[in-house]
Design a protein around this nucleic acid. Structure first.
Length: 270
DNA sequence: ATATGCACCTGTGTGC
DNA sequence: TGCACACAGGTGCATA
């Protein structure tokens, strides 16, 4: 579920409540995430004060006083939400963190594809391969050339390569290619200069709009306050197979690229 | 090095 | 109503 705009929305909605708070309790109800939650996870968090929340691609980094980091990835169905102490827990509420204020932060994740780890920046190996963040550090036009040079894979697959551009997932790769007028299957290295320029513009616009609207709520995504996003109302192609293109009314096509559903308008995207 | 396919896990929707 | 199957926002590993 959560791609860059959703993770950024969660970060923004957590920040005012959690930054400055001290962790007073950590309850791990289910350790079996993508990588099992370490045995000393709770011990290392207890007593720590959160000084900031950063984001790198789809990762959230809770900065802890003293140099530690709580690293969180929401996977496909992960969710971080705030609630008053004493709120009944629900199925798949795997981790509950309480603070020195009347507030708890709950990690819920039905499919358990997410990740929670405590360490320092150097010890968090998963951060080593995270590429540049297209929301806070969008590639300049001349940098696109270097990103795609010699690459034969479909441009959509390249957009979703977290080692290059961290944060773009299936929804937003589809949407930005529609806005750029480029077919998802086009070989990345074969795109012309003006197409790359259009893609850069489309990427910035789609991400900005999506963050502005609080992300996309397809089924169960909510921000930290339980509020859904509304960018799904703006989806031009994602999950619209057979429906008319919003621009030319041609039926939207669905194909599979890299094992992921891919949607495009055969007329507007060349 | 690069590209692809599948496994990981639970929930939901569809068709029989 | 039950059952089988396909599919879902992501990533990592095995395989060519």
């Amino acid at each position: 579920m959560p791609e860059l705009p959703e993770v950024e929305t969660v970060r923004r909605t957590l920040q005012p409540h959690v930054v400055g708070a001290r962790i007073t309790g950590v309850q791990v109800r289910e350790r079996r995430l993508r990588t099992p939650i370490a045995a000393d996870f709770a011990t290392r968090l207890r007593g720590a004060r959160i000084t900031a929340i950063d984001r790198r691609g789809k990762y959230l980094l809770f900065r802890l006083a003293g140099g530690g980091v709580l690293l969180v990835h929401l996977g496909m169905t992960g969710n971080l939400s705030l609630s008053p102490p004493g709120t009944p827990l629900e199925t798949h509420d795997h981790v509950v963190i309480s603070f020195d204020r009347p507030l708890v932060m709950v990690y819920n994740d039905p499919r358990r594809f997410g990740l929670m780890r405590v360490g320092n920046d150097a010890a968090l190996t998963e951060l080593a391969t995270v590429g540049r963040d297209p929301f806070t550090a969008a590639p300049a036009p001349h940098e696109w050339r270097a990103l795609v040079r010699g690459r034969k894979l479909p441009i959509k697959n390249l957009l979703m390569d977290q080692r290059l551009l961290a944060g773009v997932g299936n929804i937003y790769a589809n949407e930005m290619l529609f806005r750029a007028g480029i077919r998802p299957r086009r070989r990345a290295g074969g795109l012309r200069r003006e197409e790359l320029a259009r893609l850069g513009t489309a990427m910035a616009a789609v991400l900005a709009d999506a963050v502005e609207l609080g992300g996309s709520s397809i089924s169960d995504y909510r921000d930290a306050n339980g509020k859904p996003g509304s960018f799904q109302m703006r989806h031009a192609v994602y999950d619209r197979a057979g429906e008319p293109c919003l621009s030319c009314a041609t039926p939207i096509k669905r194909v599979v690229l890299g094992g992921r559903s891919t949607f495009y308008c055969p007329k507007c995207q060349r």
